Amino acid sequence: MNIAQLKQEIIQYSKTIGVDKIGFTTAAPFAELRNRLIKQRELNYQSGFEEDDIEKRVNPRLLLDGAESIISIAVAYPSKMTERVSSKKGERRGIFSRASWGLDYHMVLRERLRKLETFMAEKVPDAQFRSMVDTGELVDRAVAERAGIGWSGKNCSIITPEFGSYVYIGEMITNIPFAPDAPIEDRCGDCRKCLDACPTGALVQGGQINASCCISFLTQTKELIPEEFRDKIGNRLYGCDSCQTACPENKGMDFHLHPEVEPEPEIVKPLLKPLLNLSNRQFKEQFGTLSGSWRGKNPIQRNAVMALAHFKDKEDIETILNVLQNDTRPVLRGTAAWAIRKIAGKEAIRLLEAALEKEMDDSVRKEIINALKR
């Protein structure tokens, strides 16, 4: 078997199945990454969504016996909508981050990786594979960086020369010993625009993020969001693009190469008030194909309440008051109490005092009392 020829055949085939960039690296451990991950854990900068076992995150050979190589793939996604919907008084809208536009990227990349596995298995019958996207043990960004897909930017995203950071990435571990590609030189230099643009200061320094205060993470949590971050979330329903849109490498980057990742404006920038009334089934029917739906409707509806507060439209008070008075979920009621204070002005005192008389949940009562104090 000619490994070099097989590598070229894989590269050519990948272009026919919608892979925009492909790179190869060894299955050697990510030694430097291990130290960074240990430091992140010590600083409590992790999100909690990661694999607990750091050794599995840095040693591919623990995940596939006989592993020799890792193939990294990238698929570009759009940064702009071809059709737009506007947010206006009485019809305010929230927004899903660009990485959640179109069909769930986990499905998009897994399909391409499956096709690559099938293609390679036909060429090498005894080949073995272990593919993963985002939820696997390996750190996708570290693999992509070493495989030459792009460099790891100060915003903790992989930045490609061709598509900026607007790419989904995934990888495949295999026992085929491919020659590795060379990493790409870091082009961030002295630029710190992403760090300055981060609304919460989650980008502690170039390449280091405190996930616990990253808006992208906060929008996915299920608890009450700490009050210090609520104003900063704005009308974001899921995720955050501030560090990407600030990046000079992303200027002019907008690729519409794959129909399945094209955004539907009414879905990725939905009206907020109707969103609050959706049942679980309705939410799944409307948003279930988005990667941003993975935590269910509760976090999205909580974020929608904060988004209404962000716009400060007095005519939305009745909608938020209905949440405070009638919603069965303490997190939603507590968030609504905060939102009432933001919008209702002096009228908030009467509304919040009336709610406090009826409220039995301690966490919600605390939110109402805090709102009254302010």
Rank of each mutant, 00 (worst) to 15 (best):
T174C: 10
N175P: 01
I176E: 00
P177T: 07
P177L: 06
F178A: 01
P180G: 02
P180I: 00
D181N: 12
A182M: 09
P183L: 07
P183K: 02
P183T: 02
I184N: 01
E185A: 13
D186A: 06
R187Q: 15
G189T: 09
D190P: 01
C191T: 04
R192I: 10
K193S: 13
C194M: 06
L195N: 01
L195I: 15
A197N: 07
A197G: 08
P199S: 05
P199F: 03
P199I: 07
P199Y: 08
A202F: 06
L203W: 05
V204L: 12
V204Q: 07
V204P: 03
Q205S: 10
G206L: 04
G206S: 12
G207H: 08
Q208C: 04
Q208T: 11
Q208W: 12
Q208M: 13
I209T: 09
I209Q: 11
N210M: 05
A211S: 14
A211D: 04
S212T: 15
S212N: 14
C214H: 09
C214T: 11
I215V: 12
S216H: 02
F217L: 06
F217Q: 13
F217G: 00
L218F: 10
T219L: 07
T219W: 08
T221K: 10
K222W: 06
K222M: 05
E223S: 15
E223R: 05
E223C: 08
L224F: 01
L224S: 06
L224K: 06
L224R: 01
I225A: 01
I225S: 10
I225R: 12
I225F: 04
P226Q: 07
E227M: 03
E228Q: 15
E228H: 08
E228C: 04
E228D: 14
F229A: 00
R230H: 06
R230Y: 06
D231P: 00
K232P: 12
K232L: 15
I233R: 10
I233K: 13
I233S: 08
I233C: 07
G234N: 07
N235H: 15
R236H: 14
R236M: 02
L237Y: 08
L237H: 03
L237W: 11
Y238R: 14
Y238T: 00
Y238N: 13
G239Y: 09
C240W: 13
D241H: 11
S242W: 09
C243I: 05
T245A: 02
T245I: 13
T245N: 12
T245M: 09
T245F: 10
A246N: 08
C247F: 06
P248M: 11
E249C: 02
E249Y: 14
N250E: 02
K251W: 08
M253T: 06
M253W: 02
D254Q: 11
F255M: 04
F255A: 05
F255S: 07
F255W: 11
H256C: 10
L257F: 12
L257T: 05
L257Q: 08
H258K: 07
P259R: 15
E260R: 14
E260A: 11
E264Y: 10
P265T: 03
P265E: 03
K269Q: 11
K269T: 04
K269V: 00
L272A: 06
K273L: 09
K273M: 08
